[in-house]
Design a protein around this nucleic acid. Sequence first.
DNA 1: TTGTTAATGGAAACCATTTTCATTAAGGAG
DNA 2: CTCCTTAATGAAAATGGTTTCCATTAACAA
Lengths: 157, 157
Amino acid sequence: MPRGNCRGQGWWHGKFQGCGYRLTAGREAILDILSKSEGHLSAEDIYMKVHPKYPNVGLTTIYRTLDVLSNLGMVSKLDFGDRRARYELAEGPKGAHHHHHLVCTDCNKVVDYTDFIDDEVELLRETEKGLGAKYNFKITNHIIQFYGLCNKCSAKK
Amino acid sequence: MPRGNCRGQGWWHGKFQGCGYRLTAGREAILDILSKSEGHLSAEDIYMKVHPKYPNVGLTTIYRTLDVLSNLGMVSKLDFGDRRARYELAEGPKGAHHHHHLVCTDCNKVVDYTDFIDDEVELLRETEKGLGAKYNFKITNHIIQFYGLCNKCSAKK
DNA sequence: TTGTTAATGGAAACCATTTTCATTAAGGAG
DNA sequence: CTCCTTAATGAAAATGGTTTCCATTAACAA
Ligand SMILES: [Mn+2]
Ligand SMILES: [Mn+2]
Ligand SMILES: [Zn+2]
Ligand SMILES: [Zn+2]
């Protein structure tokens, strides 16, 4: 029977063990928030959501934890050009929900899309292989983003 | 016969006229430096290169001018994740030298590549059309970047 | 040449993120 | 369970690229 304050039951529990990281309340709080939230949260967004339930987790820890999670590949750090990093859960254990982003340069609206994703992923894989070989890079990651005006913003002009 | 201090003869002269922008010494200095430099310069890089010849052009003007040039489409603003914007001339009048970037996450080395660019551009064009229609976006721009470790950095580990 | 006003430079402000450092607590050893 | 090592933390201060402010200058149309 689980104790009241029982931690370490999340699907991510094992992820920390192997890497020598400690499983702390702050880290769980952040993963918890990320897995329950839609969208692309900034460090401060996350802080605001974590704070009511864990008032003793500071913004610094949010930054540090996001960095760790990002290095572990559990969280993706995103840049939409609005001068603050944004984060989303990379993948649940369920499997892929790989997507790319479409960004409005005016109101900063962001659309997750998976259309064309298969063609994109295939081309990316080929390109990665080719570039890696030609330039001796060990490629680990890629970005594809489209920028433009959403319908509201393009009407406004 | 051109006077000694004759300005306004660059290929970009006309670009300003139509848009109500004034052709100033600072703007010419920056375009001049960008067209003579290889690579991806930060605002401060540009300031350093402009300063010896135009000591009265301030860093603020560099930022403002890069913003204007970027809006005019004459300069591309780049982000390689090293916490400072970088800039490169978008296109001379000669035509396309469209390329994408391969970035080492360790030493920040950046490779311009054009390999696979035709396949990439074709897929991008299709995707842009599809996404634009589906999500009612007027897409103006895209980013593709690959991240990884260059051979030196991956040997170092 | 003159007048309008866009453009400018220097200093100060901004603000997301990082660093510092004293304190706390995760988790392995015993 | 208790101890111990040291990773992790919070608060406050520092950092540093970029933006804002404002008085002054100069591009260029009339
Ligand atoms: Mn997303
Ligand atoms: Mn380039
Ligand atoms: Zn918009
Ligand atoms: Zn490298």
